[in-house]
Design a protein around this nucleic acid. Sequence first.
DNA 1: AGGCAGATGTCCT
DNA 2: GGACATCTGCCTC
Length: 210
Amino acid sequence: MIEEKFFLQNGIALAKALLGKYLIRQYSGKAIITQIVETEAYMGVQDKGAHVYGDKRTERTKPLYLSGGHIYIYLIYGMYYCINISANAKDIPECVLIRALKPIDGLDEIAGNRYGSRYEELNRYQIKNLLNGPGKLCQGLLIDKTLNGKSILSDQIRISDFYRKDGREIRAESDLSIQEDKRVNIDYAEEAKDFLWRFYMEGSPYVSKR
DNA sequence: AGGCAGATGTCCT
DNA sequence: GGACATCTGCCTC
């Protein structure tokens, strides 16, 4: 059972700890179950790749300064949302960007949100591109600004180390091997762009890139 | 399977 | 006015 204190660890530790955990989204009586397979850590005021670099406290970045376990949603390129989970203690604005998910349940719901089709109607290209990117997964799970600043442990959206399927409890595996790589699309971040702060489950076909 | 352009809104200088 | 933690469709190899 994951509780608030789980999110009080630093951004890098949390980014690794979130791999393999389940992200469960519920709305209008529907449930979508996914597994986190790729994350990036953003390490706060000293990180040139982070929105809060230089202690940039603005209306937008407010959720990042909340204690670990709060949601930070931002709009990118005018069209896509991305979701982060705040890490560490209050006023330490580290966070984890969720970059890719493995779809587990609610496949028709996800396919509808992404392509307006049932899962069975998707072609191979669409199946491969369901949730393998931060913008795609927000579209697939209907994640938008209405969740900004809220807790990641709510009925609407939650991170868990188990889920229920046909009355049985499926638990996240505890020892998985983690691959490290450079973060994506932060060319402006000078030396910080080469830090190996992107993490993903080794061998997973659901990651955004290898 | 990889490269490119275009879409488009919000934030901050 | 410029930049942006992206995605899609269309183009070539």
